[in-house]
Simulated assay, not measured.
Amino acid sequence: MIIEKVVANIADMDKAEIEKRHIEKVYLESALLVKRIQRVKTDHGHEIGIRLKEQRDLLAGDILFMDEKNLIMIDVLADDLIVISPRSLHEMGTIAHQLGNRHLPAQFEESEMLVQYDYLVEELLQELQIPYKREDRKVRQAFRHIGHSHGE
């Protein structure tokens, strides 16, 4: 089976519509969510080719296939993350500036800043005395670097 478009996202579906279907999952590392062309395997052992026609990243919960009885969706494996919990706008600005200088991609969930684990970032947070914890957590989308160069 070759998948060329995402049908929907499970977060946007009615609970009753989901429950009447058998669900298979494709587990991906968050870094693979940016790949439009890849070969994957479901948790039931079925091989699927993904060749998305539209220019978009995959997201956790994206439905690759759905009929009256079955549904195949994307799920994301947990990443090793640093979860930063600044106590003030000043701390948020300080760490955001420091991470931006290192071109590290970040994600935000409520009042937390998420970055992929890096021992240098951990040392920086300790030095700046900004609260953080290291944990394995699923993210909904890939950590994406924003293209930028300092020179022309």
Score class of each variant (00 low, 15 high):
residue 2 I to C: 04
residue 3 I to H: 03
residue 3 I to R: 01
residue 5 K to A: 09
residue 6 V to L: 05
residue 6 V to Y: 02
residue 8 A to N: 15
residue 8 A to P: 01
residue 8 A to K: 12
residue 10 I to Q: 08
residue 10 I to R: 10
residue 12 D to E: 15
residue 17 E to P: 05
residue 18 I to K: 09
residue 19 E to A: 15
residue 19 E to I: 07
residue 21 R to K: 14
residue 21 R to C: 08
residue 23 I to D: 00
residue 27 Y to P: 02
residue 28 L to N: 04
residue 28 L to V: 07
residue 28 L to D: 04
residue 30 S to A: 15
residue 33 L to K: 04
residue 33 L to E: 06
residue 34 V to I: 13
residue 34 V to E: 11
residue 35 K to H: 08
residue 35 K to Y: 06
residue 35 K to E: 13
residue 35 K to F: 03
residue 35 K to N: 11
residue 37 I to L: 06
residue 38 Q to D: 09
residue 38 Q to V: 06
residue 40 V to E: 01
residue 43 D to A: 05
residue 44 H to A: 09
residue 46 H to F: 05
residue 47 E to I: 14
residue 48 I to Q: 01
residue 50 I to G: 06
residue 50 I to P: 05
residue 53 K to P: 01
residue 54 E to R: 00
residue 55 Q to I: 10
residue 55 Q to L: 11
residue 55 Q to E: 15
residue 56 R to I: 10
residue 58 L to T: 02
residue 59 L to I: 00
residue 61 G to E: 01
residue 61 G to F: 00
residue 61 G to N: 03
residue 62 D to P: 06
residue 63 I to K: 06
residue 63 I to E: 06
residue 64 L to Y: 05
residue 65 F to A: 03
residue 66 M to S: 10
residue 66 M to W: 04
residue 66 M to G: 02
residue 67 D to H: 01
residue 67 D to E: 04
residue 69 K to M: 10
residue 73 M to Y: 00
residue 73 M to A: 12
residue 73 M to I: 00
residue 75 D to P: 02
residue 76 V to F: 00
residue 77 L to R: 15
residue 81 L to I: 03
residue 83 V to L: 15
residue 85 S to I: 08
residue 88 S to R: 12
residue 88 S to E: 10
residue 90 H to W: 05
residue 92 M to T: 14
residue 93 G to E: 06
residue 94 T to A: 07
residue 95 I to D: 07
residue 95 I to R: 07
residue 96 A to P: 03
residue 96 A to G: 12
residue 98 Q to G: 01
residue 100 G to S: 11
residue 101 N to M: 14
residue 101 N to A: 13
residue 102 R to E: 08
residue 103 H to F: 13
residue 104 L to Q: 07
residue 105 P to W: 07
residue 106 A to Q: 12
residue 107 Q to V: 06
residue 107 Q to L: 15
residue 107 Q to W: 09
residue 107 Q to H: 13
residue 108 F to E: 12
residue 108 F to K: 14
residue 109 E to R: 08
residue 109 E to W: 08
residue 110 E to Y: 13
residue 111 S to C: 07
residue 114 L to Y: 15
residue 115 V to Y: 09
residue 116 Q to E: 15
residue 117 Y to I: 02
residue 118 D to M: 07
residue 119 Y to S: 13
residue 119 Y to F: 10
residue 119 Y to W: 07
residue 119 Y to P: 06
residue 120 L to T: 02
residue 120 L to D: 00
residue 120 L to M: 04
residue 122 E to F: 01
residue 122 E to D: 01
residue 124 L to V: 01
residue 124 L to R: 02
residue 124 L to G: 00
residue 129 Q to V: 02
residue 129 Q to C: 00
residue 130 I to M: 08
residue 130 I to E: 07
residue 131 P to T: 02
residue 133 K to Q: 12
residue 133 K to P: 01
residue 133 K to H: 10
residue 134 R to I: 13
residue 135 E to S: 13
residue 135 E to F: 03
residue 137 R to I: 11
residue 138 K to M: 11
residue 138 K to D: 04
residue 139 V to M: 05
residue 139 V to S: 04
residue 140 R to Q: 10
residue 142 A to T: 11
residue 143 F to N: 07
residue 146 I to S: 11
residue 146 I to P: 00
residue 150 H to L: 09
residue 150 H to V: 02
residue 151 G to D: 07
residue 152 E to H: 12
